[in-house]
Amino acid sequence: MPRPLSIVVVEKDRERALMIVDGLREAGEHDVVVIGDESSLARRIAARNPDLVLIDLASPSRDMLEELALATSPMDRPVAMFVDRTDGGMTQAAIDAGVSAYVVDGLRPERIKPILDAAIARFQMVQKMRAELAATRRALEERKIIDRAKGLLMRARNVGEDEAYALMRKTAMAQGKKIADVAQALVTAAELLK
């Protein structure tokens, strides 16, 4: 039985972090720690001296990890995974899932692979949920703007709700724009004219 690996997950959002940790648990008995506060990230990670670090590809804080490669001895320096490796399929999956990983140089690939597979699967889920959340939020925002624009039109032209909406839709189609964009332009203009 090889010793359990020490894994650090850098993730601010608590729920997402828990999801990822659950996924990693399924990949074996490993020592998983989450770091949520990204200030002094490099020092916090160095203090734990992990075998593997997982971080969101989109996180600007990733640059702080580069210091780790300098702080440790060349023998066990962490290297960025998925760069210049032969496993193209895994690299692509990792990029699509939005996860970047750092492992200690020399760690055996067969030990890392199941963990990374699990990590990729979980980050994929996180990514999907995040995209859905963003889409819902956007739809909500658009709805609010459209309602405001509708109100403006109803007052200005003294028309009913349906007619106001039809007018915006017609304009949007004529200009090849989205209704939300037309509504936004109207709201912005109305604010300027106040």
Binding site: A58, S59, E66
Partner: peptide, 9 residues
Amino acid sequence: APSWSALRD
């Protein structure tokens, strides 16, 4: 790119 390491990769 969100970071220099991401751009490098």
